[in-house]
Write a protein that binds this DNA or RNA. Sequence first.
DNA 1: AGGTTTTTTGAAAACGTTTACATTTTTATT
DNA 2: AATAAAAATGTAAACGTTTTCAAAAAACCT
Lengths: 339, 339
Amino acid sequence: MEKMYGIKEIAKMAQVSTATVSRVINGSDRVSKKTKKKVQQIIDTVGYIPNEVARGLVMQSGSKVVGMIIPDIFNVYYAEMTTYIEPALREKGYSLQLCISNSELEKINYYIDDLISRKAAGVIILSSALLDSEKLIEKIRRNLAVVAIETGFDGVDRICVENQKGMYQAVDNLIRNGHRKIGFVGYEFHHPSLLDRVNGYKKALSDNGIEFCAAYLVDEGNSTTPGYAGALKLMDCQDPPTAIQCMNEYCAKGVYTALMERGLKIPEHVSVSGFDGLRDFKLYSPTLTTAAIPLKEMATAAVELVLNNIADGNPEVVRTITFPTTLRAGESVKNIMPL
Amino acid sequence: MEKMYGIKEIAKMAQVSTATVSRVINGSDRVSKKTKKKVQQIIDTVGYIPNEVARGLVMQSGSKVVGMIIPDIFNVYYAEMTTYIEPALREKGYSLQLCISNSELEKINYYIDDLISRKAAGVIILSSALLDSEKLIEKIRRNLAVVAIETGFDGVDRICVENQKGMYQAVDNLIRNGHRKIGFVGYEFHHPSLLDRVNGYKKALSDNGIEFCAAYLVDEGNSTTPGYAGALKLMDCQDPPTAIQCMNEYCAKGVYTALMERGLKIPEHVSVSGFDGLRDFKLYSPTLTTAAIPLKEMATAAVELVLNNIADGNPEVVRTITFPTTLRAGESVKNIMPL
DNA sequence: AGGTTTTTTGAAAACGTTTACATTTTTATT
DNA sequence: AATAAAAATGTAAACGTTTTCAAAAAACCT
């Protein structure tokens, strides 16, 4: 990693001042065609690349980096988010610093300090856990443009999903297909969003005059293994449900496996309905009827918002953008309505 | 995003010089206990966080950032890599800049320039495509500590997998279980590693005196959908194979689905064998027999190597570290050897 | 006390840029 | 050809740190 050419060397070679070189680099300014050409030539031949660090220092612009704090890149929900956010940022000239938090407050703290000290321009926070450190939020707000996606963070701009309404629709759809015994797999409280979903389930039932049955609500966690276990548990009820609503698609995955192993066909024997609409699960067979979250739109909105906040500073009064889900019909729900 | 305290403000408040404050911040140096305490107190109360940008500039240390260029974060292979690499870097005080390339050379070029201009310390490159831009590699080598993982990059330190040997073992295992009609799903040439795997398959056959049958080699791509199609194609042979070896686990996923849909039990009717050993696919049922790549060890080695190169500069003569695979027995292979 | 060593501190340069302001050159106007 | 206006260029300060070197203060000897 030998000594790089700097603007000074370029200036000397071109026999102009560093100011002129700087102006050439940054295009815009007024430089004569002749010198511009001369300087550009030298820049090209030596392959000079401006030092963003120095630039950031003098311009007080911070480095054009946006941090993204996520619990886990392995979870396809976050992976898909990342897939959308990174290009959107890059398009605007920003780089993405990936920060994997495991939902640990300590790590989040570390990353925030890191981003601040690196003069990152902003941060997008995704978290599956409720965070409520007043001090942390204050620190973030003072130093970074910030937006949170579906997170318990209060006091910063947020991108949200209509979890309750979405779940209501999904369950209502089951009911409209004649189901009245509807199990719910994947309950676990560690995030308000999840609670909202369960409330949507309950509300759909009660609005349709169906009594909530505790045995139908399986609360063993919201990933694949609990989904698997949950489906088995439901099928072992003395009066098993005819349909299963899942907290998310990880659960649905487990439910599919469990039902298949039991020799129960979807949707002939049991209907299944999901939540999230992730790209990775589109290959299910039979295709899953699911309440799809507009992940891409959310990602775009988050980037837009954070860029806004970079430009204008975080707003005094926080904004919340809420996205609706869309019920995407698949083959996993059967109409059992008596004619 | 108000004006932050700088070292100057701290110095003024503490009534010392900036040099002293700097020394306190960086611990090590010789400062009297009294002043150290005084300064530290002020730092703590105002919540001063040093400006890494300025620090990087004067120290010529570059920013403590390592880029990671990957084709696609959605692919769990890369997601799992990322999961291991990020914490390993963080532990050493480095941040990860995520660069999603879609295997496009143009984007890779962009990211490299970006990393260089930001004075990143190094870059870890994963690529599913063969890259051979002499000029690009030269530029990388001159400006960044670099290591490539399983990539066609020549001329930089590399982390590799014994693809051929691994596939040989996997297929050999099928043969030892009595299979002689062995299909291969997922062939697609866009990377040397994949070719190596196919060669391993062929070699295992020939070493065991089994003639290679072109109809058994399905080359429609190496992801889930082609895996699905490939399995159907194989089963439609007039003399279908008794076992299917997959290029990777995405293929295996498709194969599983296809066989299930055909009502073919694994391993009773058809044995299936995979490659990669990714965490995400451990939930398969029946569990997949697979040639597992030591992803975590590779990630650790990559980080170690890149840190070495950050410290000592890229070596004159490139190093290659090759990792063996491990055959992980699951339930997907049945022994049909006649007794 | 006085001198010597050691410890602690500060002043100022340096890192690689951008930019306000001043100066020089070119162009336009008469 | 002289002058005014516009365009191009250069000088030097600034960004927030670290660090070298020198100076001041403290500690230790006789």
